[in-house]
């Protein structure tokens, strides 16, 4: 059976070079009858990386975790892991919420500017957070703030559970100067954390309603993220994730690799590098720290 999987990979690699440039049957008819222009094109991954699709489709049936583990075994050596949190610099969120009455502060920077976030535990299974982005690149100033509310629905066991998160992006940023969109957006994100073969894995899937009423049908966006991470006994952790968005006018995907160092119980340093998998996103490096108090 495994042989067939390798056949699929081989076919995908070969097919990437032999794809015909001619339009397919439907496009051909659409051009002939003059309605081809109605198509909303959105860029996605090019089929030259179709091998990724072969892994994805097989992965859905095999359990996404097994595939991710296979890829990550090249990077990670499995050691007994300590509790893990998909916090900075991973974009993918974990199911955990900040303890009642405690605070967590995340601060980081990248090429665009500084990003800090403060979270407070409001109930044993609920926390509220405020994201404060400050741009320093082309235009400097405070960008749109984002409010998060996380509600932990169910714990399956240690480091495993399901959480739902509600986001609201405010309109305080100066839209004319490019610091905000001028629209109030809100989103609902489902978060699943699960241990897969000793690796902590987190999966996010959400839908964001963009406040721009005129273009709401084309702008409303699915957001997705999948991350795996592992901590070693000496406090060093490694992680990887694929995150992106998908709406009617574009599809993006980024692969981020990151390293973290847990300096003490309350302070953790991190650095990450995010590689664009689609040509409409960009490579970006980031660094920062998280502290709990």
């Amino acid at each position: 059976m495994k042989k067939l999987f390798f056949v699929a990979i081989l076919v995908a690699v070969v097919a990437a070079f032999f794809a015909s440039a001619n339009p397919d049957g439907l496009d051909f008819v659409a051009e002939q009858l003059g309605f081809a222009g109605r198509a909303i094109e959105r860029p996605g991954l090019p089929y030259t990386v179709g091998v990724l699709g072969v892994f994805l489709t097989a992965g859905i049936f095999w359990g996404v975790g097994r595939i991710l583990k296979l890829i990550l075994l090249l990077i990670l050596i499995l050691v007994c892991s300590s509790p893990v949190f998909a916090a900075r610099p991973l974009v993918t969120d974990d199911y955990g919420t900040v303890e009642l009455g405690k605070y967590e502060l995340e601060a980081g920077f990248n090429a665009v500017g500084f990003l800090s976030q403060i979270k407070r535990g409001m109930a044993p299974n609920i926390d509220l957070g405020l994201e404060i982005p400050y741009n320093t690149s082309a235009v400097s100033g405070l960008a749109d703030l984002v409010l998060h509310g996380k509600w932990r629905l169910k714990d399956f066991g240690e480091d495993e559970g399901v959480t739902v998160r509600v986001d609201a992006k405010l309109t305080n940023g100066d839209a004319a100067r490019g610091l905000g969109s001028g629209f109030l957006d809100y989103g609902l994100i489902m978060i699943l954390s699960k241990k897969l073969g000793g690796l902590a894995s987190h999966f996010n899937l959400g839908y964001v309603v963009i406040g721009d009423a005129a273009n709401s049908v084309t702008d409303d966006t699915f957001v997705y993220g999948a991350a795996v991470e592992n901590y070693f006994q000496n406090g060093i952790g490694l992680g990887a994730e694929i995150v992106g968005i998908c709406c009617q006018i574009r599809t993006t995907a980024n692969l981020q690799l990151c390293a973290r160092y847990q300096a003490s119980d309350s302070i953790r340093f991190d650095a990450g590098y995010s590689m664009a998998l689609t040509d409409n996103s960009s490579n970006i490096a980031t660094g920062g720290l998280t502290c709990a108090f």
Binding site: S20, N22, D24, G25, G53, W62
Partner: peptide, 21 residues
């Protein structure tokens, strides 16, 4: 899973048909 990945790969092959499609 096998069949799905094989179909995914095979769908990437665009074979030319007469008349430019």
């Amino acid at each position: 899973g096998m069949v799905a990945s094989l179909i995914f790969a095979a769908q990437m092959f665009n074979f030319p048909i007469n008349s430019g499609t």
